[in-house]
C-alpha cells in the first residue's frame, strides 16, 4: 500500500477509536498502539529513510501532521473524560434547613446589658431573698411604720413580719451589713419585686428591678449625676441627656426621679413621652444617713448614692413596647423577635 494512504487510514482508524474510548485507560492504549515505541504510526515515521528519496518528504510531512493531529485529539479526549459531571441546578429560593435557635427573654437581655455596663464600671453583682423580713424591706431602709408602702394595701405579706420585697433595696442593706466597714461598697443588685398593683399596661404585681449602690469616702451628688449620665449613654446611646427632678424616697436624701432623652423623638416631644421629650427611667438619691448606719457605716465618715430601675420599664423604652404585660404572656411569636440585632 502507498505509505501516504497507509498514514491516512491509520489516522482515520485512530480517530474513530478515540471517539469510542470511554475511559482514560482506553485512551492510553490507543496512544501506545499508534504513537508508542512500537506504535503503527511510529513505525511509518521510523521507516521513512527506507523510502525512495522523492517519497520521503511528502510521506514524512503527512505522517508528522497525522502524529500532531492524533496527539491533540488524544489530549482533547483526555480533558473531556476527566471533566467533573455537574448535577442539575437546585431551586435556590426554596427554604434552607432551619437551625432552630431559641431566644433569651427580653427582660434577661436588658438586665444582662445593665449588669454588663455596671460591671464594666467596677460594680459587683449582689443578691438577696425575695421573701424579706419587714426590717430589711422597710425599717432598715428608713421607711416609717406608718408609711403607705407598709400598708397591707401596697405590699404582699407572707405571715407575720415577712413580706415579698417591694423593691430590691434590701440587697443594699444585706450587702453593707455583710461587708462593713469595707470600702468601697460598689454593687448592683437585680431581682424580682412585688407590689399589690392591679395589672395594667404599666403595672404588674410581679416585676423586676435592679439596684445600684456606691458607698465610699467623699461620694457626692455630682458623682451620682455623672454615673447616671454615663449609664444612660451606654444603655441608650451617646446622645441622650439626663435630667433630675427632686422627689422623695425614704432611703435616700436628696432623692430624684431621673429622666433621659426620649428615644423616639430626641426631646422634641411625642406621644411616647407624653410630649415631654424625656422619659422617666429610674429613681435615685444620696443614701439616707439612717440607712448607712443600719448598714454598719458611719454617715459622718462616708457617703453614698443609690438608684433603682425597673427592668420592664427599660425594656419597654428600649424596644418601644407599650404594654408591660407582653413580657409575661410568653407568646413565642412575641419572644421570637428578640433573637437578632446588635445591641
Amino acid at each position: 500500500m502507498d505509505p501516504k494512504e497507509r498514514v491516512g487510514e491509520l489516522l482515520h482508524r485512530a480517530l474513530e477509536e478515540i471517539a469510542d474510548a470511554d475511559d482514560e485507560g482506553a485512551l492510553e492504549r490507543i496512544r501506545i498502539s499508534y504513537l508508542g515505541r512500537e506504535g503503527s504510526l511510529t513505525a511509518i515515521l521510523r521507516s521513512i529513510g527506507e523510502l525512495p528519496p522523492e517519497d520521503r518528504a511528502p510521506v514524512g510531512k503527512r505522517a508528522n501532521a497525522a502524529k500532531n493531529q492524533l496527539e491533540s485529539a488524544l489530549e482533547t479526549a483526555q480533558e473531556a473524560l476527566s471533566a467533573i459531571p455537574f448535577e442539575a441546578p437546585v431551586d435556590v429560593s426554596a427554604p434552607g434547613l432551619p437551625v432552630d435557635r431559641g431566644t433569651r427573654h427580653p427582660l434577661r437581655i436588658v438586665l444582662d446589658e445593665v449588669l454588663d455596663i455596671f460591671v464594666a464600671m467596677g460594680y459587683s453583682v449582689a443578691d438577696g431573698p425575695e421573701v424579706e423580713t419587714e426590717w430589711f424591706n422597710f425599717t432598715g431602709l428608713n421607711i416609717p411604720e406608718d408609711h403607705p408602702a407598709r400598708d397591707m394595701q401596697d405590699s404582699y405579706y407572707v405571715g407575720k413580719d415577712l413580706v415579698l420585697r417591694s423593691q430590691t433595696s434590701p440587697i443594699q442593706l444585706r450587702y453593707m451589713r455583710e461587708h462593713a466597714p469595707q470600702l468601697p461598697v460598689q454593687i448592683v443588685g437585680p431581682g424580682r419585686t412585688y407590689r399589690r398593683d392591679t395589672e395594667d399596661p404599666s403595672h404588674s404585681p410581679v416585676f423586676h428591678q435592679c439596684e445600684a449602690l456606691l458607698v465610699d469616702r467623699g461620694i457626692t451628688m455630682g458623682h451620682l449625676r455623672g454615673t447616671l449620665t454615663e449609664f444612660a449613654r451606654r444603655l441608650f446611646g451617646e446622645h441622650v441627656n439626663v435630667r433630675f427632678r427632686p422627689s422623695y424616697f425614704p432611703f435616700t436624701e436628696p432623692s430624684a426621679e431621673v429622666d433621659v432623652t426620649c428615644t423616639s423623638c430626641g426631646e422634641r416631644g411625642c406621644p411616647a413621652c407624653g410630649g415631654k421629650g424625656f422619659m422617666e427611667i429610674l429613681g435615685a438619691g444620696m443614701v439616707h444617713p439612717t440607712v448607712l448606719e443600719n448598714g454598719g457605716y458611719d454617715p459622718e465618715a462616708v457617703s453614698g448614692f443609690a438608684f433603682g430601675m425597673g427592668i420592664e420599664r427599660l425594656a419597654m423604652i428600649k424596644y418601644g413596647i407599650n404594654d408591660l404585660r407582653s413580657f409575661y404572656r410568653n407568646d413565642l411569636r412575641f419572644l421570637g423577635q428578640f433573637g437578632g440585632g446588635l445591641r
Binding site: 467596677g122 461620694i219 458623682h223 455623672g226 454615673t227 449620665t229
Partner: peptide
C-alpha cells in the same frame, strides 16, 4: 439638681469576679 456638676467617682475598683 441639674446645676450640680456631674463627675465620675474615683473609687478603688476591686473588679467583679462572678
Amino acid at each position: 439638681y441639674n446645676e450640680i456638676p456631674a463627675s465620675l467617682p474615683r473609687t478603688a475598683v476591686t473588679g467583679y469576679v462572678p
